[in-house]
Simulated scan of single mutants.
Amino acid sequence: MINLYRKTAVVEGISYLILLFVAMPLKYFFNIPEAVKYFGWIHGVLFLVFLVFLVLAAVKYRWSLIRIGIYLIASVLPIVPFILDKKLAEEYPN
């Protein structure tokens, strides 16, 4: 379960970076709004999947509400999900 959560968090983090640093500049600097439309949808779906796996992992590993809150806040900060992924890999080795 933890590996599935970690992979989902990383993919969601990548989609967020693409949305912020590729799609948004395309929209606002080059007047190509379709980039945000499509990447926004992709990111939105991935974020919902991320939330499902966060809840499942939280229940399975009995994470505290503070830890869940940290992971939620981290999901909206561009680089933090990758830092937390490394920490989770250390905490839950395969």
Rank of each mutant, 00 (worst) to 15 (best):
Y92D: 01
V55Q: 03
Y61G: 03
V36K: 10
Y71G: 02
K37Y: 10
Y71P: 00
V76I: 07
G13V: 08
V22Y: 14
G44V: 02
L19R: 04
I73Y: 13
L72N: 12
K27R: 14
Y61A: 09
I68D: 02
R6E: 02
R62L: 10
M1E: 06
T8N: 02
E90P: 05
V49L: 14
L17W: 03
E91I: 05
I2A: 02
V11F: 15
L19Y: 03
V52G: 01
A89Y: 10
N3D: 09
G69F: 06
A58N: 09
K86D: 11
K87L: 05
V52N: 03
S15C: 04
K7G: 11
V11K: 08
G40A: 04
G44D: 11
L4T: 14
A35G: 07
F47P: 08
V52L: 03
V80D: 08
I32W: 12
P93H: 06
L17G: 08
G69D: 05
S15I: 02
V52M: 00
E90W: 06
G69E: 04
L72V: 07
I66K: 13
M24T: 13
L54H: 12
P33E: 08
W63D: 05
G13W: 03
Y16M: 09
R67M: 14
Y92P: 04
D85W: 10
P78F: 07
F39R: 01
L54V: 12
V22M: 14
R6W: 01
V55Y: 05
I79W: 11
A35R: 10
G69K: 07
W41R: 07
T8V: 02
Y28T: 12
F30Y: 15
L88Q: 07
I79Y: 10
G69Y: 08
I18R: 01
K7L: 15
N31A: 14
A23D: 04
Y16G: 01
K7Y: 06
W63M: 14
L26N: 12
L19Q: 00
P81R: 13
I18Y: 01
P93W: 01
G40P: 06
